[in-house]
């Protein structure tokens, strides 16, 4: 499913505005440990996390993730946002916690 459709369906904020909206998401991975995401996520997944620093984008890019959703109303640091735009990887946000948004994404993607 396209990122733009997911934004609409789940009412997400798009911090990166138009960047990467046409990327396709195949699933999700919910975790705040970067090495776990590095080792176990699959390309095309959306990463759900509370980490807001630039290294998130390094991992997302290296693992070919579809995008990042920040939970609990968190906002990306300026350098994270700049790298996300540069890489064309969407960074989205929600006021919901990781459990709730993961559940909604799971249902939306028909998992």
């Amino acid at each position: 499913m396209q990122i733009s459709e997911i934004i609409q369906a789940l009412g997400l904020k798009a911090f990166t505005e138009s960047a990467g909206l046409s990327r396709n998401a195949t699933g999700g991975y919910t975790c705040d440990l970067l090495s776990d995401v590095m080792g176990h996520s699959q390309s095309g997944q959306i990463w759900i996390t509370l980490q807001t620093h630039k290294n998130v984008m390094a991992v997302a890019s290296l693992r070919d993730l579809a995008g990042v959703i920040l939970v609990n109303g968190l906002m990306p640091n300026a350098d994270m946002l700049a790298q996300a735009i540069e890489e064309g990887i969407p960074v989205l946000g929600t006021d919901e916690n990781a459990f709730d948004i993961s559940g909604k994404l799971f249902i939306l993607l028909g998992k």
């Binding site: 705040d32 440990l33 970067l34 090495s35 776990d36 080792g39 996390t49 980490q51 620093h53 290294n55």
Partner: peptide
């Protein structure tokens, strides 16, 4: 705090 240092790095290296 940044989400590193969980003791998974070297095993990730070994596994790959």
């Amino acid at each position: 705090e940044m989400g590193f240092g969980a003791g998974m790095g070297l095993s990730n290296i070994k596994n790959n």
